[in-house]
Computed example of a mutant assay.
Amino acid sequence: MKYLGRLVLLAILIYLVWHYRSYFSSLNFYKLSVKTDERVVEILLQNKITESNVSQQYRQENKFLFFHWITSYRTLRLDKNQQKNLTGSIKKIKKFPVSFWEAKENDSLQINAGIDFYFTKIVFSVLKISGEKPGQHLVAIVIDDFGYEPTIEKFIECGIIITPAILPQERYSTLLAEKFRQQNITYLIHLPMEPIGYPKINPGKAALLVGMPKEIVEKKVNQAIKSVPGAFGISNHMGSRYTASVKDLSILLPLVKKNQLVFLDSHTNPRSMAARVARNFSLPVMVNDIFLDNEDSEAAISRQMERLKVIARRKKSTVAIGHCHRKYLLPVLRKYQNDFISSGIQFVPLKDLYLQ
């Protein structure tokens, strides 16, 4: 009987492997994942959920053995009625052969679409639904200094909404702009500008220097835009001396406006004149409130996150800046994400703050 039982189990295992292998091979996972995403978009539009409700979206390619598919991720900001209507629509959908199921992720609703087997799930679409109340406190996390390395996966997959700032005319500047564009992540040109201490402190080859003629400034701005195509704005890399110069800002900021961009003052100098000069030209401008990782340690960044929370709860919108090469920044951001949400603070793209 002992051996008979083992033979029966082995026979069942062989059947399951054969059965599901046949089922898998009959499906084109890539086409099915694309079709699923199209169906999800239809459902969102039917429920009047538009781009204005999407705070983040990106796509991730997956490969396992001989299977290849795409998982699309969207983070949605919905009120209670929108959530109710969406979940109601989802429940009415019949398998095609994709099914939908709900899950809880960090105390918020998540709707997945894919193939749900007894022993595994192949996920083609993820909708993360944020149910925070309107009028809450918004925080944009800007991550500076992209351009030196080609990989961005850890930032795309971290689950934190960020706004990348890409240094122009670096080896991977244009490549990274295209990668972020494909993921529907808005990004900035992180334009180098003269710091206090120049030339001992070198801002880089693309830098704007105090006293530069207008035609040189215009040439450098155009080169930066060409190097980082599709950016929605410009922020200053270094620039503690440049942003304190009304004369030089009066040359730069009209060019920013001419190219239909916005400006983020990184606020590397508390005496920066950028916001004041920008108002003279009716140019949208935001100002950084806090640097998160001047010291790259878990304890130091955690202290800055606590300060950020205090600042954010006093204001409707807040900007914080970190740096892509810091070791502890992303782990600390993940650690604090739920704490911020429970405090009524939401991470959003910087672009959302300009739309307020």
Rank of each mutant, 00 (worst) to 15 (best):
L86S: 04
E218N: 00
N288T: 13
N85L: 12
F146M: 09
K257D: 00
I251C: 03
G197D: 05
K257Y: 01
K214F: 05
L252S: 02
V54R: 02
H323C: 11
I49C: 03
M305H: 03
T163K: 03
S26R: 09
R326H: 12
P134G: 02
P134N: 02
C324K: 14
K257P: 01
L208W: 00
Y187A: 06
S125R: 05
K258I: 01
I341F: 10
V246M: 09
I49D: 03
P349K: 02
S55Y: 14
K133G: 00
G211N: 03
R313K: 15
D37F: 00
Q169T: 14
V54P: 04
K335A: 14
A320F: 05
F124E: 01
G147Q: 06
L249H: 00
Q169G: 12
R74T: 00
V139R: 05
I341C: 03
K214I: 04
P164Y: 01
N85A: 15
I14N: 05
R21N: 15
K94W: 02
K128V: 09
H137Q: 07
F96N: 15
R59M: 00
I43T: 15
L350G: 09
E38I: 08
W101A: 06
I345C: 06
I115G: 01
L127W: 12
L45Q: 14
A300M: 03
E105R: 13
N294Y: 07
K121A: 04
A140V: 12
E153G: 07
K351Y: 10
Q60C: 06
T243S: 15
M286C: 12
Y30G: 01
E178D: 11
Y172V: 11
L308Y: 04
E61G: 06
Q57C: 03
S250Q: 04
A312S: 13
Q56M: 14
S99N: 10
I93A: 11
H323L: 11
K133W: 00
N338P: 08
F24P: 08
Q169Y: 05
N202P: 03
H137F: 02
K84F: 14
E38M: 08
V348W: 00
L355K: 12
A103L: 12
K226T: 07
I161V: 15
Q82L: 07
K327W: 06
K154D: 12
T75S: 11
Q46M: 12
K121L: 08
K205G: 04
A206N: 04
L255F: 00
K335W: 05
K315R: 15
Y242G: 02
E306D: 13
N62S: 13
M1T: 13
K226D: 08
N85C: 07
V262T: 07
Q223K: 11
P254F: 02
F146A: 06
F180R: 02
L127V: 08
E157T: 14
Q337F: 10
L191F: 04
N112D: 09
T87L: 14
E194Q: 10
Q169A: 15
N28G: 10
A177Y: 03
L176Y: 04
Y30L: 07
S108D: 13
L253P: 01
F263M: 02
A140H: 09
I141D: 01
A312Q: 10
K92V: 09
L264M: 06
F64E: 11
L32W: 02
D293A: 09
S235K: 01
K214Q: 15
L333V: 05
G147P: 07
A244Y: 00
Q83L: 14
G135M: 02
E153C: 05
M193S: 01
K133L: 06
S55I: 15
